[in-house]
Amino acid sequence: MAIPKHVLIAPIGQSLEQVLQNTSFSKLFVLTDENTAAHCYPLISSILPAEHLHFSVPAGEEHKTLQTCSSIWSQMTSAGLDRQALVINLGGGVITDMGGFCAATYKRGVRFINIPTTLLSQVDASVGGKLGVDFEGYKNHIGLFGEPEAVLADPVFLKTLSPRELRSGYAEVVKHALIADAGYWQKLLEQEQWQELDWQNIISHSIGVKGDVVLQDPTEKGLRKILNFGHTLGHALESYRLEGSAEQRLLHGEAIAAGMICEAWLSAQKCGLSEESLKEIARYISSVWPETMAKPEDIPAILGRLEQDKKNEGKQVLFSLLKAPGESVYNIAVQQAEARQALAWYIKKGWQ
């Protein structure tokens, strides 16, 4: 599994200094959210040119909107950024997705660098060039594909995360093992405490898995869809919970964990995933995320979200599922009644 050439997994001082020395730009614009401004920006500010511009936006998925983009574009315009400017997105998946989208659309595109600061963004959002924002309650509904000049990943930023945020990112690690590496899945099962994993190796492995898939299918015409395992019902659940109070909202990885259990059940019904593997997957994921992320009364609203999933073709809701751990398939049509059963099985913890 090869790490893409533009991705550097190294101490941030070393990698950022190297990239800035080798990149010409007229102005440097640094985008953070309020959390990364406080905890991560101080780790890089001394490396940046003194005349750089820094703009911070509110933190959270609920701010990943065109309204926030408008404020970012206004700041870029006020700062006089031209097409030779360079943008650094310092943050988690919200900032790298939205900051990349703003850079790629400002004056028809300026270059940008991503410095992912969460486990989730380092193992997943850092690779693949998906940029965008949420719209009318739908995840990543407006966006485009655009590659950063560089992605600089450093596990040091993980020390700034809460335990909940770190656990959220671990969901994508589990997904990468399940869709493409049965041997790695076994290693995760054998690790007694997931918190004690070697994050440098974890990040390298996940980036390698995703990088291999993206290299073969950069714009998600086929194979890349396997990366959406857990994300069809997971995104629907996440979008639904975003409508509630701040206490009701889920982190992305929490929703994907629930989605992977539901979609493992669908995999057993439709793709031949063994009952043994289904229960093994569900038990492991529920051991890391013991909370149930949905209630029976939530099911109709969650199912309603499936109609706008980006993988759909016509009125068919298409899922990416598993034949076995490490072996995935895509474009599997699932009826609403089947999705309802999957959610019900998850809610009642049918693996117990």
Rank of each mutant, 00 (worst) to 15 (best):
residue 347 I to V: 09
residue 86 L to H: 12
residue 50 A to D: 14
residue 296 P to Y: 01
residue 258 A to G: 07
residue 62 E to W: 12
residue 26 S to E: 07
residue 254 E to P: 09
residue 153 A to N: 12
residue 161 L to G: 01
residue 194 W to P: 13
residue 320 S to C: 05
residue 315 K to F: 10
residue 171 A to Q: 04
residue 249 R to Q: 01
residue 86 L to G: 08
residue 348 K to E: 11
residue 114 N to D: 14
residue 51 E to R: 08
residue 216 Q to P: 14
residue 332 I to A: 05
residue 265 W to I: 02
residue 294 A to Q: 00
residue 2 A to F: 08
residue 277 S to V: 12
residue 340 R to Q: 15
residue 315 K to S: 04
residue 54 H to S: 06
residue 255 A to N: 01
residue 108 R to S: 04
residue 345 W to V: 02
residue 27 K to G: 04
residue 14 Q to A: 07
residue 263 E to R: 03
residue 57 V to K: 09
residue 185 W to A: 09
residue 5 K to Y: 11
residue 154 D to F: 00
residue 246 A to G: 13
residue 217 D to E: 15
residue 153 A to M: 14
residue 111 R to P: 01
residue 276 E to S: 11
residue 169 G to M: 13
residue 333 A to Q: 11
residue 239 S to C: 03
residue 238 E to N: 02
residue 49 P to K: 07
residue 108 R to T: 06
residue 12 I to Y: 13
residue 180 A to F: 14
residue 209 V to P: 12
residue 263 E to M: 05
residue 64 K to I: 13
residue 148 P to F: 12
residue 225 K to M: 06
residue 227 L to R: 06
residue 125 A to G: 04
residue 234 G to S: 01
residue 140 N to K: 14
residue 48 L to A: 09
residue 255 A to Y: 01
residue 171 A to S: 12
residue 224 R to I: 02
residue 150 A to N: 05
residue 305 R to N: 04
residue 134 D to Y: 07
residue 333 A to P: 05
residue 320 S to K: 15
residue 224 R to E: 01
residue 258 A to C: 07
residue 168 S to W: 02
residue 220 E to L: 04
residue 130 K to R: 14
residue 90 L to N: 05
residue 262 C to R: 03
residue 9 I to V: 03
residue 281 I to F: 12
residue 281 I to A: 04
residue 82 D to G: 07
residue 12 I to G: 13
residue 251 L to I: 08
residue 252 H to V: 06
residue 97 D to M: 10
residue 28 L to K: 07
residue 273 L to H: 09
residue 135 F to M: 08
residue 85 A to M: 11
residue 140 N to M: 02
residue 84 Q to M: 08
residue 275 E to R: 15
residue 296 P to I: 00
residue 352 Q to M: 15
residue 276 E to G: 14
residue 251 L to G: 02
residue 175 K to C: 07
residue 161 L to R: 09
residue 330 Y to M: 11
residue 144 L to E: 11
residue 236 A to V: 00
residue 216 Q to L: 10
residue 33 D to R: 06
residue 345 W to H: 05
residue 177 A to C: 01
residue 177 A to E: 13
residue 270 K to W: 00
residue 128 G to A: 04
residue 330 Y to A: 11
residue 257 A to P: 11
residue 320 S to Q: 07
residue 136 E to Y: 03
residue 322 L to V: 05
residue 46 S to Y: 05
residue 337 A to W: 06
residue 134 D to Q: 10
residue 256 I to T: 06
residue 150 A to M: 03
residue 56 S to T: 10
residue 321 L to K: 14
residue 147 E to P: 09
residue 265 W to H: 01
residue 161 L to M: 00
residue 59 A to L: 00
residue 88 I to N: 11
residue 343 L to H: 02
residue 334 V to T: 03
residue 92 G to A: 02
residue 78 S to D: 15
